[in-house]
Design a protein around this nucleic acid. Sequence first.
DNA 1: CTAATTGCAAATTGTTTGCATATTC
DNA 2: GAATATGCAAACAATTTGCAATTAG
Lengths: 144, 144
Amino acid sequence: MSPGIIDTVITRIKERGGRVTVQRLAIINVLMRLDHPTAEEIYQFMQADFPTLSFTTVYNTLKSLKELGVVHEYHQDERSRFEISEIPHHHFQCLRCDKLTDISPEKISVTPDPELESEFGPVEAKVILQGLCKDCREETGDKH
Amino acid sequence: MSPGIIDTVITRIKERGGRVTVQRLAIINVLMRLDHPTAEEIYQFMQADFPTLSFTTVYNTLKSLKELGVVHEYHQDERSRFEISEIPHHHFQCLRCDKLTDISPEKISVTPDPELESEFGPVEAKVILQGLCKDCREETGDKH
DNA sequence: CTAATTGCAAATTGTTTGCATATTC
DNA sequence: GAATATGCAAACAATTTGCAATTAG
């Protein structure tokens, strides 16, 4: 689908002395297809194609890829969720079903007061918009 | 220190049919004094004054207070951190030591593109500024 | 009085580790 | 061929639950 990402990932793994294994590539592929999956979701999804893949490897691989700078981990709710690290972006989080949706940076303007930079130094702003996603709004009829 | 908060909390607990117990009030007091503590930190801190307080009760109480809308739980890093729910605000998170610092809402202007509201409905924006806190900047000398 | 809360021990869940085997470079 | 990755079983850490005793309203 997006061959550029895979290439970038392979390059980065090699650069840092990591090995390009079937499992790693497969997990990257899943991350490109699933939306902020948990380790469990990744494992389940891969069972069809890789029945021998172990849960441990999913965890280990995600951890390695995280250290290689290839994936990013979120602790938003009780389980960790993962995505491919790319350009920084914001998120929408549904308060009812917890679903995360990416929002591109230019969609939200964030301007910290200059005094914050003097207190905290250079910062990167991550915004989480919280509300109800379309599905949950339809189910609840709640207009907030 | 801030009697208004305690009163508000008591009122809210009673409104929702909860019981105002010693343990609950004590935990509220700790939350007013500690900065985004974990359950463990709360427990440790309270051991001096309430040696019979159990770990379970800290967890159960935090959970109840959360359901009563009195405290808010964060999953930013691997442990949960808690704070008293009050007016919404933003956070600064240190990328090195994970420390959270509150930032008042007027210190950061956030303007989501109008099309986001049409997609997600009414939303509340929470900003996490990430960088290095003063202590960590001094220790690393890293200017980013 | 009685329904909610506490607190112990035990269970669960999410994640990590030790180590033998298999694989990439 | 040597170093890294995989995967099983077992260990771990954070949190939750069952249930009897206690307590607030």
